[in-house]
Each structure stands twice: as structure tokens, then as C-alpha cells.
Computed example of a mutant assay.
Amino acid sequence: LVDGEPVAGGLVDFGLYVFHNARELLERGAGPYLYLPKLESHLEARLWNDAFVLAQQRLGLDRGTVRATVLIETLPAAFEMDEILYELREHSAGLNCGRWDYIFSYIKRLRGHPDRILPDRALVTMTVPFMRAYSLLLIQTCHQRGAHAMGGMAAQIPVRGDEAANDAAFAKVREDKDREVADGHDGTWVAHPGLVETALAAFDARMPEPNQIDQKREDVLVTADQMLVAPEGPITESGLRTNINVGVRYIESWLRGQGAAPIHNLMEDAATAEISRAQVWQWIRSSRGVLGDGRPVEFDLVRSLIAEEMLKIRDEAGEEVYAAGRYGEASELFVALTENDTFEEFLTLPAYEVLEQP
């Protein structure tokens, strides 16, 4: 609350950050550089631009001092990339492929369309047509406007004590970054500092200059249909179990105050947990939500698999860790999120209610 009135947390955070840090950052040769997540419209970008202008005026900073990279991680925003860059033109550092949230947004926004059912989460990679179209369009849009195009986060993390699994993780990151830099991205993300060198090596090998903005990618022709087509692939019991297991484990971690959690050798965050619960929600309600063996994904099946996965989690965690954790609450919340016909915009909204319980 500010003067007794509710205020958006993002605006409060920005105001405090720029007030206390902008001049110090400038003196250090940097500046107030920000990420703007979850935007769905150029109108939100316009609001942020107004906030940047106001803050700069009040603090006596030159116009354009604040710079922001917008995460294009929602389906609506992917159709307004030009407009978002225009609204932030004096303050834009570029656009970023927020791949995991983008998949979640695809499911969320198209959940009622029977022809937009995604297969197992592991099959929805950056090389499937709708994800590739989104990535290439972002590069083209940015470079034609003279802005940086940032790649997405590889979720793999180093695997200690298993050389083969560790080598496989590094190989996947290397392949991912080779593809990004070859396509024209100017930079990228990794999920663990141990993989920075691998990402840098890929970009240094193909991008000797600071960026590739000169590559306008005029050869890219992306249609609206290509941005929306669902990839082919099966829905399997293994994929359903993975969604349940990862969803419950992440929610439990979040309830304990951890925003990112290493699970099954991947760095999971709220976005990947959102994919997990959203897929289960959609599969239950779709005529195409059928496993490869012919069984429909129904409430009873999901409940039985949740019970089995909870036993696995208990065995893997150990009795002491399990008892000290919040696995029961996480399981109950996952059940509620998938069984409630009203689709929650974000799983963290009801999760906050759990935290507020005495």
C-alpha cells in the first residue's frame, strides 16, 4: 500500500530501485537496466515507458537512461513485438525469448481449442514449428528495428556423480546455443553458471562482433498460422507422471521460499511448473487428452498417479526431509489446480493463499 492505496508491486520495485541505485550505477559505467516480464500488450509497454520517463524527470536523469529488455513470453505479446519495441523505443535494449513461459501461455490462451493440444512437455522443444516460428520472428523483428534479440534459457544443469548424464546435459546446451547463434540471436541464457562457458564458446565461434543486428533475416516469412500450429506427438503415461512429479515438487519448493529448484537434472521454475499443471488441466478436459495406450486422461487416473508419485517422492526425499517439507500442501494444491474448472491465471495466486494460512 502507498498512502493507503494498493499499488502494483512491479512499479514499487522499479521506483525504489531507480531512486536508490540509478546514479551509483551510472558512476560505475553501467545503468538502470531492467527486464520486463509477462507483458501481453503494447499498452503495458506504453505504461512502463511512461513510468521510465516520469522517473527520469523526477531524478534529473537523461531521457533514455533506463533501458529495458522485454521478455516475449506470452502468446499475445508475440503478435505485438513491433508495437512493443515502438512503445519502448527510447528505452529498449531488445527482446528476449522466454521459452518456458511462452509454452505455458500457449496452453493457457488456447486451452479451449481442441486442435491446440500439446504432446508430452519433453517433446515441445525450440525446434517444433510454432516455437521456431516465434524465435525467428523475434530475431527478424528486433534486427529490423536495430534492437538486440536474446535467446532463451537452456534448463539443463551440471550433473554431479554421473559423467554420462553430465556430458549429455552439456551436449544439449551446446546444441541449443549453436542453433541460437546460427539463427541470429545476439545473446542467451543458461540455468547454471557452470554452463556459461559452453554458451560463450558457441557464440564466440560464430559471432566475433558484439552482436548480429546486421543480420536482418529478411528470408524469414512467418504467418499467424505458423505461430499457432500445435506439434504432433503422443501424450504418454510417462509424460503425465513427469508433469505431476515436477509440478508437486516445484510447488513444494516454492512454498518453502525457493523460486527455482533443480529437479531431475533440470532447473525448474514457476514457468515449467505452470506447463505441468496446465497440460494436465487441458488433457483432462479435451477429447484428445488420450494416452498412447488408449486410456483417456481423467480425474480418477490423475488422482491415482498423484498418489503413486507422492510415494516415489517420499522414497527419494527420505522420511525426515519429506516430513519437514510441505509436500502434502503441494499435492493438495496441484489437485485443486487441475480439478477446478476455473483455470487459474498463475499457480502462485492460490499458492500465496496457502502461505497466508495460519
Rank of each mutant, 00 (worst) to 15 (best):
G325W: 02
A336Y: 14
N21E: 02
R249A: 12
P350R: 07
V321S: 06
I117A: 12
T242P: 01
G31F: 01
R67Q: 12
P208Q: 15
S276H: 12
D50H: 14
V229R: 08
H113C: 09
L61C: 02
E356F: 09
G194Y: 11
E274T: 01
R217N: 14
V2M: 13
E353L: 10
Q212S: 11
L95F: 07
E87A: 15
M227Y: 06
L26K: 04
V297F: 06
A270N: 07
E209C: 04
H42V: 08
V159Y: 14
C142P: 09
V159H: 14
V246Y: 13
G294R: 06
L118F: 01
A164Y: 13
A149H: 08
I306P: 09
N49Y: 13
R116M: 07
K216W: 02
V7K: 11
P6M: 09
E320H: 05
Q140K: 15
A22L: 00
P210A: 06
W48T: 04
L59G: 03
V229K: 11
S41G: 05
Q258H: 15
A93M: 02
R111Y: 06
E339R: 05
F170H: 10
Q156E: 13
A271H: 15
A30L: 11
Q357C: 14
L39W: 05
G247M: 11
A351P: 15
T127L: 01
G151Q: 09
L75M: 09
G10I: 01
A182Y: 13
R285M: 09
S304C: 04
A77Y: 03
L25K: 12
G325L: 04
V66S: 00
R160L: 05
F334H: 04
A164N: 08
A351Q: 15
M131N: 07
G325C: 06
G94P: 02
A201W: 11
L311R: 11
R63A: 01
A230N: 06
G98K: 15
H264L: 14
L47M: 05
H264M: 14
L71P: 02
W189Q: 00
E309Y: 06
L301C: 11
E353G: 03
E356I: 09
L228T: 10
I213G: 03
D293I: 02
V124R: 14
T338C: 04
A205D: 07
P158H: 10
T69Q: 14
L85P: 03
A230P: 06
M310Q: 06
P114D: 14
L95Q: 10
L255A: 10
Q258G: 03
H91R: 06
Y352C: 05
V7A: 11
Y35I: 04
F346L: 02
V18I: 11
L71V: 15
A324N: 15
A165Q: 13
L136G: 10
R121C: 04
F343H: 10
H148W: 13
T236P: 01
